[in-house]
Computed example of a mutant assay.
Amino acid sequence: MALFQDLIFPAPPSLFLTAMTVISFTSLVYAGISEAIGKNLQYSKFWNAGVADIRKETRISGRAGMLFTYLPPLAAALASFAVPGFPVSGRSLLVRTVLSLHFFKRVFEVVFIHQYSGQMTLKYAIAGTMNDFLNTVSLLYAQYLTQDTPEPSFDLKSVGILLFLIGITGNFYHHYLLSKLRKKNDKGYKIPTGGLFSLVICPHYLFEIIDFLGIALISQTLYSFTWFSGALVYLMGRSYSTRKWYLSKFENFPGDVKALIPFVF
């Protein structure tokens, strides 16, 4: 416990951040457990999975849904550069920069990289954008409140920057490989190949976790570490569910390919 306190800024007396810490962690863990037991969020290959009556769900295109999800948190990250009183250098600048790059990459991929074969429920799109927007605002606000607070005993910014760059690059590369699986107008699914797909079915999630860990280490706030922990549980559940889906759809799916962590999980 004492070591952890040396790694983070003291928690600020903020009712909003306290509530968001509990809500964010709880909701992400719940979503991860739900994914693992088959109650999947309604997008991508899990569209219509577990939906009793699809006609009752309001639908939008996958591309529109993802843009709706990612544009508000990108706007929040970019708007933070104009917030009066926000330090214009150091750790705070780094946090704003990496969050902006993270969501810019996501929007870029939605527009230019990803291939979409289905639709998304409007309910999921709204929940997704609220989750990402509130988490982004909370990460920024937590950093804002660290002003005039002594730095943690261990400075993890350099490690965080390295992990962020590895994570965002690896995630983009494996998203690119996924986009090349389909030819134009091809709506079917195939077993991914290349990169780390020979070891895990969700290397893009693995690198996203590394990306998130990098952001948490750059920030070094209680909220950033709590948010990362919840996101880790969610992506573990999502990758576990994804591997089960591939096993059910492809008889030739290699059994030694893990869900998320090579040779382990």
Results as ranks from 00 to 15, higher is better:
37 I>S: 00
210 I>F: 08
204 H>D: 14
121 T>G: 13
111 V>T: 04
187 K>Y: 05
25 F>K: 11
7 L>I: 09
35 E>G: 03
171 N>G: 10
126 I>V: 15
41 L>N: 03
206 L>T: 14
141 Y>K: 15
163 L>S: 04
51 V>Y: 00
262 P>F: 05
96 R>A: 09
160 G>Y: 06
113 I>F: 08
45 K>C: 04
196 L>K: 06
129 T>N: 15
43 Y>L: 09
259 A>D: 01
168 I>M: 04
225 F>M: 14
144 Y>V: 05
163 L>H: 05
105 K>T: 02
109 E>R: 02
47 W>N: 10
42 Q>R: 08
32 G>N: 05
52 A>D: 11
99 L>P: 15
117 S>P: 12
241 S>G: 11
22 V>P: 00
178 L>W: 03
78 L>V: 13
38 G>K: 03
259 A>Y: 01
12 P>I: 07
68 F>E: 02
218 I>P: 08
33 I>K: 12
120 M>R: 12
236 M>K: 01
222 L>H: 12
48 N>E: 13
106 R>V: 01
42 Q>E: 11
132 D>N: 15
39 K>A: 04
122 L>S: 08
83 V>W: 14
135 N>Y: 00
177 L>N: 08
208 E>A: 11
258 K>F: 04
122 L>I: 07
163 L>G: 05
253 F>M: 07
14 S>C: 09
81 F>G: 14
152 P>Y: 04
85 G>C: 03
61 S>H: 06
194 G>F: 09
205 Y>R: 09
79 A>K: 03
166 I>Q: 00
208 E>K: 04
196 L>R: 12
42 Q>C: 04
52 A>Q: 10
143 Q>E: 10
248 S>W: 02
111 V>C: 04
119 Q>K: 11
156 L>C: 15
174 H>G: 07
180 K>L: 14
60 I>A: 05
44 S>N: 15
232 L>Q: 01
90 G>L: 01
58 T>P: 00
181 L>N: 08
260 L>R: 05
196 L>P: 11
186 D>L: 12
259 A>S: 05
258 K>Q: 11
13 P>H: 06
70 Y>M: 03
245 W>Y: 08
231 A>H: 04
5 Q>W: 02
176 Y>M: 11
69 T>K: 06
185 N>H: 15
102 H>Y: 04
32 G>V: 03
123 K>E: 07
110 V>K: 01
184 K>N: 12
263 F>L: 10
208 E>N: 10
188 G>E: 12
161 I>E: 02
19 A>I: 07
239 S>L: 05
66 M>H: 06
260 L>T: 01
185 N>I: 05
262 P>A: 01
126 I>L: 15
3 L>D: 12
167 G>E: 03
263 F>V: 09
106 R>W: 01
8 I>D: 02
197 F>W: 13
154 F>H: 14
60 I>D: 00
142 A>N: 09
41 L>H: 01
8 I>Y: 05
14 S>N: 14
181 L>M: 13
15 L>H: 11
